[in-house]
Structure formats: C-alpha cells, structure tokens
C-alpha cells in the first residue's frame, strides 16, 4: 500500500483548503494512507534568496521529520515540492552544507540522512499509483469538457533534481486529466510560468504574465484550466479577476481554474462540496454540467 507523510505548507491551509480536502478524499478513495507530520515548519522557499543555509536547515528539518517515520513526503505545493526536493538533493551532495545543517538540527535532536523521496501529487498519481489503477476509479467521466493544462515550473524543474519528465515537453498532467474523459487542448506558450513568484515584489508583472496565459487559453477555446500548484491555481483563479480589471476593458475571461484533484474527485463520483468547488473565485460549478450521468 502506498503511504506518505503529508506536508501541506502554508499557502494551502491559508488560501486553498479545497486542494487539501480534494487530495485527502481522492487519496482515501484510492487506499493511499497519509500521515500528518507533527511540529512542522516553513519549507524555507522564501528564505532561500536571503540566506541559503537557513533555507537548507528549514527544508532539512522537514525531511528529517519524515525520515524519522521512514516515509516519503507528499508535498502538494509546487514551492514546497521544489524547496524540499532541491534541499534533499543538495544536502546529499554537499558535505560541508550537510554538516552545517546537521549542526543546526542537533538542537532539535534531529539529523538529515537523505534516505527518503519527495513527491508531488502528480508524481504520486502517475508513478506511484499508476494511471491504470486510477482509471478504474473513474465512475462519472466528463463528456465534452475542453481543458487547458498548466503544469507549474517547480514540479518539473530543475529536471536533474526532480527527475520526473522532460520539462520541454511534459505530458503527465495531460495524461492524468485525460483519464477523466476531459479533452485536453494545447495553447500557445503552454509551458510558460504563471508569474506567481514575483507577486510579492512586483504584482503588475505577475498580472501581465498571467493575462498572457489567460489570453492564449481563451483563444484555444478551452472551457476551463486545470492546475497542480496552489500558487498557479491562485494566479489563474483569484488573479484572473485582477487581470480582468487591468486588461479586460469591461470584459471578463470567466475561465474556471480547477485543481487536478478536484477534477479527479468529481469524476470519481464525489460531490462539489467534497472537493470544495464553491471556494473557487471564478465560478467553477459549470464544469459539473460536463459530467456524464
């Protein structure tokens, strides 16, 4: 049986509880066991630009917590996934930094050994659970729903660390969403970043970037967008309203942006409340109309 230590980070509990709820329900449905870690801390993503050692110690402590239980970490956020996976690889390779981090962790009676993996939900579905197994659980497939997938940079890159798939031509999210019956549509600049990482320092740039993506997705004729990372989801959903305001000239995109776990949950027969669909800022209820009876 597949079993993970779940690390949800900060953005999911604060702004995107629907992601955690839909993930827990889908995983439970699939018989995957999730263990909550006690006394976790911030992954250090925002600390890395200021002080790399502090970031390595923060991520290192989370890795060590999961190591104590001998469990791989399931991280849902792209930021956490990349922070933890990068720290895991870096600390294994760099002895000096590993010793420095372990000196810090000794204060908590802990130490980093580097014996577990960090996976994201998409890795888990595609590699650990398997799409074949997943497809057996799809009882209410979508019919005629045209979906545009957004992958999320930090789930694929740096590829030598994440070792998941070719970041220039990924297909995991498209493959994953296809099994729900959705038709995946391609769009211009599909693999571009959503702009979220600069939202704190330069919001106008982030909105400009997401507006371009929304424009291209809209041109491709998609009914909705599917995302993996909570930051991307917030850019496509919450910040879509901002893009409407700044660039819309009175018009609205009205493109629902849903999480892949919400999509899976719905097609497994869960109701909209279970996957938190009403919490989406851009009305996403209309995608339910595409579900077969």
């Amino acid at each position: 049986m597949v079993k993970y230590a779940l690390y949800t980070g900060c953005t999911i509990p604060y702004r995107l509880n629907a992601y955690e709820a839909s993930t827990r329900k889908v995983m439970e449905h699939l018989g995957v066991e999730l263990v909550d870690l006690d006394q976790v801390n911030c992954c250090g993503l925002y600390v890395e630009p200021a002080n790399k050692l502090a970031y390595l110690a923060l991520s290192g402590r989370i890795l060590a917590l999961a190591e104590e239980q001998n469990l791989d970490i399931l991280a849902l956020c792209g930021g956490c996934t990349s922070a933890l996976a990068k720290a895991n690889a870096y600390l294994k390779e760099h002895e000096d930094e590993r010793n420095a981090v372990n000196e810090v962790l000794a204060d908590f009676d802990m130490g980093f050994e580097g014996k577990i993996r960090v996976v994201n939900s998409v890795n888990s579905f595609v590699e650990d659970i398997g799409l074949k197994e997943l497809k057996k659980q799809i009882t209410k497939p979508f019919n005629g729903l045209k979906l545009a997938a957004h992958y999320g940079c930090h789930l694929l890159k740096p590829s030598e660390v994440l070792q998941f798939e070719d970041p220039e031509a990924p297909k995991s999210v498209d493959d994953l969403c296809s099994i729900t019956g959705a038709m995946m549509v391609d769009y211009r600049d599909k693999y571009d970043c959503c702009g979220a990482p600069v939202i704190a320092t330069e919001q106008s740039l982030a909105v400009k970037i997401i507006n371009n993506k929304l424009k291209n997705i809209s041109h491709a004729g998609a009914n909705a967008i599917v995302t993996v990372c909570p930051y991307c989801e917030l850019m496509f959903d919450l910040m879509q309203l901002e893009a409407d305001e700044v660039y819309g000239n009175g018009k609205k995109y009205g493109l629902p942006a849903i999480l892949h776990t919400q999509l899976l949950g719905l097609s497994m027969g869960m109701d909209t409340e279970e996957v938190g669909l009403s919490l989406n800022k851009v009305n996403a209820e209309k995608i339910v109309e595409f579900l077969s009876e």
Partner: peptide, 18 residues
C-alpha cells in the same frame, strides 16, 4: 492546521545568521 513552530524558525534563523 498543523501548528507551525515559530520557535523552530527563530532558532534556525538565529543559528544560521538570518
């Protein structure tokens, strides 16, 4: 919500020079 230990962060920030 998992209780994030601010104490853990402060200790790490102190030891690493942050």
């Amino acid at each position: 919500i998992p209780e994030a230990s601010g104490m853990v962060f402060r200790k790490i920030a102190e030891k690493t020079g942050l």
